[in-house]
Amino acid sequence: MARQEKESRGLVPGLLSGMATTARTAFRPTHTRQYPDVAPDLPPRSRGVIALLADNCTSCMLCARECPDWCIYIDSHKETIPPASEGGRPRQQNVLDRFAIDFSLCMYCGICIEVCPFDALFWSPEFEYAETDIRDLLHEKERLGEWMATVPPPAAFEPGALEEVVVDEPATEEDATQPPEATR
């Protein structure tokens, strides 16, 4: 084999070629990024944490039932809304009391987000929520709502895709808390 012949030429050429490689590599920019100082570039689809837009949630329980390991907890009660106009009928509405996701159980499959018919759940690439106590990984409604600010706007598809995504204007400070879908 040609490679073995080259190697058997002796110690000095081997050393020289080794040093040449070292010299070449020394002047190349590094591949490593010092993580806590330099944040990683995460794609918008990155599955980091699940955000909840509680206003859109109707407590229909679809996500909790479809979750493969049942890590979503939902409590709700019904409230009667008096008729809006004279002679109208009073309506019943679900009010969300508790919505919690236990991230110590979550398998990050995204089924809950996919099945949600009212666009109340979103993926966010945010991942820095490690805890020293496992019980703190149970995120309640408020904490899940805070993640909404980190949800990226829907990104465009490759040409050839059937669906077109409307890419919004860069979000202003005001509507940063709004879901991207709501502004479409």
């Binding site: 689809r45 465009a156 598809f157 490759e158 040409p159 895709a161």
Partner: peptide
Amino acid sequence: LRDDLPAGWL
């Protein structure tokens, strides 16, 4: 598949 390809991915 779950989603289409993101723009520029290819």
